[in-house]
Simulated scan of single mutants.
Amino acid sequence: MIRKSILILTILIISCKTENKKTEFIEKQISVANTISETEEIDYWQHSEFKVTRSNNENGKQITIDSLHFDILKRYFKTDSTKLLFVQYDDFVNDTIIYKKYYKNGNLKEIKKYTYRKFIPIGNWTYYNSDGTIKKTIDHSLKYKVSFQKAMGLVKENGIKKPYETQIYKDSLYWEIMNWKNVEFDTISNEGIDQGKGILINRENGNIEKVERKRKWVT
């Protein structure tokens, strides 16, 4: 009975240590996420429910961290599984992606930022030489008077709830930022209807138009 109790206690201790290491791992990755929403602290990066998946195939070693509000993907060089090739942070709630690619010597090669669902380039893109010096930068926020970051501020002011879905509307003149909710789903046909509320933001003068739409989809 004593041996059985000791065994159970040992398993519990090992389990706790494994979970602690798992939590430390995710927090370490999250601490360098450098999310797009620079004006906002995002506590869901510390969400307790996440899954870590590891694989190694013809594309090289890969680690995926999957949670309700974000994904983190890390891939390593095929020829050296200890060297990080790139890491990508997908922020579902704020509709943003940060992509960081590395040289084999460990130095950054490039940093890019997109909207998550439509892959619209946003913010500063930076390209580096292998010695760590900056090769060139592209500031996508300068393309229009109302940048993506400014648009996010207007969205908050107008009470649009997260998660957001962002796209460029009407020949690139408007930011369309919507919050979609499923209102109908047919389990037989796998068809659904979403109700969206959001705003159109003129990217030249900042004028705002509130919109409501419905969309149909099939899985």
Rank of each mutant, 00 (worst) to 15 (best):
41 E>A: 04
122 I>W: 06
19 E>L: 15
25 F>T: 03
143 K>S: 10
130 S>R: 09
197 K>P: 00
203 R>N: 03
172 S>M: 11
208 I>S: 00
147 S>T: 10
76 Y>K: 01
111 I>D: 01
55 S>F: 04
168 I>Q: 12
89 Y>I: 01
133 T>C: 05
48 S>P: 08
36 I>E: 13
150 K>E: 14
117 R>W: 10
115 T>M: 10
14 I>Q: 11
97 I>P: 05
93 V>L: 08
180 W>R: 09
37 S>E: 11
146 V>W: 07
106 G>P: 00
28 K>T: 12
216 K>H: 06
167 Q>L: 14
201 I>R: 01
109 K>H: 13
111 I>E: 13
186 D>M: 02
56 N>Q: 13
150 K>C: 05
148 F>Y: 14
27 E>K: 15
39 T>N: 13
88 Q>M: 12
162 K>S: 12
134 I>V: 14
209 E>M: 08
208 I>G: 00
1 M>T: 10
101 K>D: 14
11 I>C: 12
117 R>F: 15
65 I>C: 01
22 K>M: 12
111 I>A: 07
133 T>W: 05
69 H>N: 14
192 G>I: 04
47 H>V: 04
130 S>G: 04
59 N>S: 15
59 N>W: 12
23 T>L: 12
91 D>Q: 03
78 K>H: 07
216 K>I: 02
149 Q>T: 12
192 G>H: 04
169 Y>T: 04
126 T>D: 05
140 H>Y: 15
77 F>P: 00
198 G>Q: 09
210 K>A: 04
160 I>V: 08
57 N>D: 15
73 L>S: 05
161 K>C: 03
26 I>Y: 00
27 E>C: 04
46 Q>L: 14
72 I>R: 02
191 E>T: 08
70 F>S: 03
39 T>I: 03
16 C>V: 13
156 K>T: 09
204 E>H: 06
52 V>Y: 02
86 F>K: 07
156 K>G: 10
137 T>H: 04
112 K>C: 11
84 L>S: 00
129 N>Q: 10
164 Y>E: 03
193 I>Q: 11
157 E>S: 14
92 F>V: 02
215 R>Y: 01
71 D>S: 05
178 M>N: 07
34 N>Y: 09
175 W>H: 06
75 R>S: 13
156 K>L: 10
182 N>T: 15
60 G>P: 03
191 E>P: 00
207 N>K: 10
11 I>S: 11
92 F>L: 06
148 F>T: 05
109 K>Q: 15
188 I>G: 02
118 K>E: 15
153 G>M: 11
104 K>E: 14
33 A>K: 00
27 E>F: 11
163 P>K: 06
119 F>V: 09
170 K>T: 10
59 N>F: 13
99 Y>Q: 10
24 E>F: 07
14 I>V: 13
195 Q>I: 05
48 S>K: 14
101 K>W: 07
20 N>A: 15
160 I>G: 00
97 I>C: 07
94 N>V: 01
50 F>V: 02
175 W>G: 03
216 K>T: 07
23 T>W: 11
144 Y>M: 11
23 T>F: 14
214 K>H: 03
101 K>Q: 15
94 N>W: 05
56 N>H: 12
41 E>G: 00
121 P>E: 13
8 I>E: 11
41 E>C: 01
180 W>C: 07
189 S>M: 07
44 Y>F: 08
185 F>K: 06
